[in-house]
Design a protein around this nucleic acid. Sequence first.
DNA 1: GATTAATGTTACAGCCTTGTGACAGGAGAA
DNA 2: TTCTCCTGTCACAAGGCTGTAACATTAATC
Lengths: 231, 231
Amino acid sequence: MNTIKILVVDDEAPIRMMLRQALVRHGFEVEEAGDGSEALNMVADSMPDLMLLDWMMPNLSGIELVQKLRRDEVTKDLPIIMLTAKVEEGDRVKGLDLGVDDYVTKPFSPRELIARINAVLRRSNPAEADGIIEHGLLKLDASSHRVTIDSQLLELGPTEFKLLRFFMNNSEKVFSRNQLLDRVWSRGSFIEERTVDVHIRRLRKALEPFSVDGYLQTVRGSGYRFSANTK
Amino acid sequence: MNTIKILVVDDEAPIRMMLRQALVRHGFEVEEAGDGSEALNMVADSMPDLMLLDWMMPNLSGIELVQKLRRDEVTKDLPIIMLTAKVEEGDRVKGLDLGVDDYVTKPFSPRELIARINAVLRRSNPAEADGIIEHGLLKLDASSHRVTIDSQLLELGPTEFKLLRFFMNNSEKVFSRNQLLDRVWSRGSFIEERTVDVHIRRLRKALEPFSVDGYLQTVRGSGYRFSANTK
DNA sequence: GATTAATGTTACAGCCTTGTGACAGGAGAA
DNA sequence: TTCTCCTGTCACAAGGCTGTAACATTAATC
């Protein structure tokens, strides 16, 4: 599981601390900013996956910060959850117009906050619903999460499944180990390049009893390639 | 694709305006009603695809409106999403009993609203309407709320029933715990993902004495799948 | 053919996911 | 009220998967 980075923006250090604690406990990576302009820098620097923003802040207010982010092409889709002390009609409407993704009103429980965060993250995901991909005897059905070869069901682990899906969606192209780590393992993890080799090996072993081999090809010095052409 | 018509029922014009704006921007067709009786007329006239209903309204209240609609054969399946000012346990339960499809608590973001609307529409589509579904030895009669396996009556709790019905209506597809929470539990509250596991377990336990197992399959790392294929 | 680098294979300890039973609280019935 | 059924959560157990290291094998260059 890749770690998700959350930027906490609040002018009060104790509250940041509390939030950090709750978030870290649930496996998120946390960064902090004490005011709006600091937040802008951090967003530019490390592009978090989600921003938790206190509504009331000195200097650059929450409103302005959100406006700025929304205007920028790069950050206009950054999921933002606002923390509000209480529901004020005026603020609410403003926030809605700006495109904030969700509100959490204080006081809130850590669990609720986590649930909201997960909901927003899930929603902002483009939903990776593919269809059925076929290459020769190999058939991969993403919706049922099944792979068959010559009508025989294959047993694959999660990573092997993702790897095979990626290759079948990008056949005939060579990918370096690093590219594969980026695109199959999803960023954020620090994994040895050689790990890819091992998973390739596992995939090959799963296919071996059925096919005459040749789907997963090694391109020495460059990486691997999936090819439907037998041989 | 057909444009989808949404009826917005709220007594406050500014809020209707705001909602209209958000909905139109996402490609929906919008109609408005300022109170319950007006809403009844519009439903009769133009049969919208979904109704967005403010819980607090003068005259005909939200409760009464829903009751009336649910009693009428023509409108008893009209998807309804309620807008509530805050989560009141009592109201929520009442609403669930009446057959409201989902809740959105203010304040909410346009994105969240749109997401909920799409979720409800998606859910109401595959006609999980009453009917008899059969998969192998399993037979589920939605109208009489009965499940039999090999002609033996099964005792299921409300949640297990809904879960099984959902799976039987969407067999062979893998659903993540979160998807299941969205589509089987009316997601007004925040529920732990692992809760799904427990209900799966309860369902399996209920089926166990009869079948040779294999209906409810675990897809490690992804979720669960219902499959009629033994194994 | 020898040397060196790259890739194939295997084994394994730890982590993560899932299975499972227990339990407290809530809602409804008696 | 008290009782019963149901539900969501937790804690622990079990087992599968994963990333790495270590060793074997193959390819490339000279």
